[in-house]
């Protein structure tokens, strides 16, 4: 099963001994901080986990594969993720100490 916000909120609830709704609100506030930061164009770096980067993509010519029509795709801003070396090694080893 996929890891979801509900599961993470339950862990926060248990470890910090908070009411369920507070645990969920705290997590949402944390996610909002991350989203605002990325929105402002600033990267987020979590040591031992990875880095969320904001990448500027230039406008480029593309083609609609269905109609074969040429068009200009506008400049975009996208989010990318780079996994830290430490986490990468953990994922690729059989070590499950975490």
């Amino acid at each position: 099963m996929a890891l979801t916000k509900t599961i993470i909120a339950e862990q926060i609830q248990e470890k910090l001994d908070l009411p369920r709704t507070t645990a969920y609100e705290v997590m949402e506030e944390f996610l909002e901080i991350i989203k605002e930061t990325i929105e402002s164009g600033e990267d987020i770096m979590i040591s031992g986990f990875g880095k969320f980067c904001v990448n500027e993509k230039k406008a480029r010519k593309g083609r609609n594969p269905a109609t074969d029509e040429e068009m200009t795709l506008p400049a975009r801003r996208v989010v990318t993720f780079k996994c830290s070396g430490k986490l990468r090694d953990l994922i690729n080893s059989r070590d499950t100490s975490l």
């Binding site: 099963m1 890891l3 993470i8 862990q11 989203k35 986990f49 953990l90 499950t96």
Partner: peptide, 21 residues
């Protein structure tokens, strides 16, 4: 807790889905 949960899911090969993020 947040980043450890994600790391653990990755190590176990599980999917992660954080709506809106």
């Amino acid at each position: 807790i947040f980043f450890d949960s994600l790391s653990r899911a990755f190590i176990n090969g599980e999917r992660v889905e954080i709506r809106g993020f």
